[in-house]
């Protein structure tokens, strides 16, 4: 298990990559952006980017705004 903080909440991930995390959160295929420890992880790197214990992940999407 990889122990992460995702959007401010603790999260235990059984996989290791950003793509694993996105899938575990039921977010595959959705328009989103991922940041790990304040660095953007581009979509093209989701499958390869390895997460480590203690990583802080932010996942964002577009909502209504002016």
């Amino acid at each position: 298990m990889t122990t992460l903080t995702v959007n401010g909440e603790p999260f235990s991930l059984s996989g290791r990559t950003v793509a694993d995390l996105v899938q575990a959160l039921n977010l595959s295929g959705r328009r989103l952006a991922v940041e790990v420890n304040r660095d953007i992880v581009p979509k093209s790197a989701h499958a390869d980017h390895l997460l480590s214990d203690g990583d802080v992940v932010e996942i964002v999407h577009a909502i209504g705004g002016g």
Binding site: V6, N7, G8, E9, F11, L25, N26, L27, R30, R31, L32, A33, E58, I59, V60, H61, A62, I63, G64, G65, G66
Partner: peptide, 20 residues
């Protein structure tokens, strides 16, 4: 058209509608 960028709810349903 303007949009805001916010944290995605974790634990949301896979079919939750998306603004875009």
């Amino acid at each position: 058209v303007t949009v805001a960028i916010r944290r995605t709810n974790i634990g949301q349903n896979a079919d939750e509608p998306n603004l875009l």
